[in-house]
Design a protein around this nucleic acid. Structure first.
Lengths: 350, 350
DNA sequence: CCAGGCCACTGAAACGGATAAGTAGACTTC
DNA sequence: GAAGTCTACTTATCCGTTTCAGTGGCCTGG
């Protein structure tokens, strides 16, 4: 609480006018030189470049943006309560993937973390766009009848939808083949002899959870596997409660394998299975729809479906930057997931 | 790869000139009205405000920044390899905490995620600052002889250091009392009768790891507890290897309790203890310097030192925004950590 | 009744860069 | 050797906002 900071803005900031004055030429010539445009001689260009480096010049992003060019910033809103963000390694990986590409292509990420509230999310987009802060946005966590779609389209904000495909949506989307993933998961359990399984999915307000449920049901029916689908929150406790409920049934009725919607849910389920006096994988096999370090740290380590979230983020960033530059990549299919088999799934008990 | 996007910039964007024209007054009057400055009558002010809402006006951040005002953006660089970011719930919590405050006070977060490379981090600051993109930065992960300090001071970028105190540093820092934390941890183990403990810390290039090591050694010496300090990476495997090495010693020599630098390290250590044929907490107690969901998901659940990282991020953001507005809060002490005792620590075996 | 002050407002410049339009001078062209 | 074409610049304007320096009109005080 001591003295006010002595105006940090005091630090010398170099503009093209300074360079022009220093070299005795016009601002325009400097601008041409720095942007690699024709209109200046080779020697002048070199002198300008040298002076810019020497004097520590950087283009003012504000001034550039003001003339109508890009801002070089991409917006991303994370709208889940912080306690859910925590272990959802998905987000951090996604961010890292997005960032790699943005850095490569000279853009930056404007991030907003808000509790679960779609209105707030839309307000943020409206504001960022109105203030000309961003070139476009990445929309994650597609919801059923997603309320963000219409405002985004109406404001004509360039956007990439992580989800879809969507009939009205004309911008790029990153499409995951949930039905193939479901096949993979169910096939694995079927091969191990499981004929009664449960699927504890995340909230069905998310489109990907709906798709997975549908996929699992279809794959199970095809193989004559009996499946119970239960909707859970993403948090550990709800998964544990639902697991306990499932296992209270008579041994002949209860599932011999459980698919969980996330690594955290699976780890919690693991605890619930033990508390029910059963063991994994001897009595019950469990399988996580997400892989992560957590999956390898619990005992037994979890069989999990692994997606490359870094690549996912990178693909989203590429699609968005391409769109901003005028190329609509349309529907981009993301790489297939891979089932990593560990010790939490085993042959069904006879 | 279909048609180029039809210039999204085409969407009508309203400027104060539009409002001025609409109302038949000057741009200056509109500006005064919108900013709550004297110079316009109450009725005019109201008409301007109404028109701004009606026409959907937002201030252009670029134009504002150009006149020398704030940009309303705070920069943050995460420079650790993505695989470490993943389970380090610290970062996500920190981000969420920072964001809450920024949103409240009308700022946004510009984020860069880079692999572990301080040079790149400094280049990012230099660029952001040169391009007038940010008002200030939050420096996390203080390092020994931190190479970021000097450039930041020289460029006079307003910054908050998460760490310190540092003699030359005149800007705010967020100081954690590592010595009190160490006391708490060692006291707990001492009370349980442990007289031979090990501390597997994170990399000593980080100042907080050094402080913790020093604190643990001092607290142990004070109580006549024997302590072995080992430097580990933050990753699981190195912690497991070091744990195995420690437990290979003769029962009379090996530690009866191990303090780990993070939750991931502890969970991995847990596995290593089991593989050595020993049990937690009967043979060895383990304790994590970080609490998280992971700590509750492994068996046994981990005794852990809990920091409020959300509050930590919030404090950092507050200190920075205050600094930007001219108030240097100096040394801010963060709230003390709390030891959450769970099942992974128990009385030492006789 | 008029100087002085205040109020509500206008005009213009400034911020830093992009860019359209203009202008010398050198060089080609027939 | 005059007209035309390049090249290498310069001048001026614009983007949207803030802000400084006016400028009338009205009110007040002496």
């Amino acid at each position: 609480m001591s003295s006010p900071s002595k105006s940090p803005a005091a630090a010398a900031r170099v503009s093209i006018s300074d360079i022009a004055r220093d070299l005795g030429i016009s601002k325009a010539a400097v601008s041409y030189a720095l942007n690699g445009l024709p209109g200046v001689g080779a020697d002048t260009r070199e002198r300008v470049l040298a002076a810019a480096t020497r004097m520590g010049w950087y283009p003012s992003s504000s001034a550039r943006a003001l003339t109508g060019a890009r801002t070089g910033v991409v917006g991303l809103v994370l709208s889940r309560p912080p306690e859910l963000l925590t272990l959802e390694t998905f987000f951090v990986h996604l961010l890292a993937g997005v960032e790699t590409v943005l850095a490569e292509r000279g853009s930056s990420l404007l991030l907003r973390v808000i509790g679960d509230h779609p209105d707030e999310e839309i307000r943020t987009y409206r504001r960022w766009w109105g203030e000309r802060r961003i070139d476009g946005v990445i929309l994650i966590d597609e919801r059923f009848r997603d309320p963000r779609i219409e405002p985004i389209e109406q404001m004509q904000i360039p956007a990439v939808l992580c989800g879809g495909p969507l009939r009205s949506w004309e911008m790029p989307s990153l499409w995951t083949d949930h039905s193939a993933d479901s096949e993979r998961v169910v096939a694995h359990l079927h091969e191990l002899g499981h004929r009664r399984i449960a699927h504890l999915s995340g909230p069905t307000e998310f489109v990907h959870e709906r798709s997975r449920r549908r996929g699992v049901r279809r794959a199970a029916r095809k193989r004559g596997v009996d499946v119970t689908t239960v909707e859970c929150g993403y948090t550990g406790p709800t998964a544990a409660t639902q697991t306990a409920a499932l296992l209270q049934q008579a041994p002949a009725d209860r599932p011999t394998a459980i698919i969980y919607g996330s690594d955290v849910m699976t780890a919690s389920g693991l605890g619930a299975v033990h508390e029910a006096g059963l063991s994994v994988p001897a009595d019950v096999s469990v399988l996580s729809w997400d892989d992560s370090q957590l999956a390898t740290l619990v005992r037994p380590p979890l069989t999990a479906l692994r997606r490359d979230n870094l690549a996912y983020g990178a693909a989203a960033a590429h699609a968005l930057l391409d769109l901003v530059e005028g190329t609509n990549r349309g529907l981009v299919q993301v790489a297939a997931s891979e089932l990593v088999v560990r010790a939490s799934t085993a042959p069904a008990r006879r």
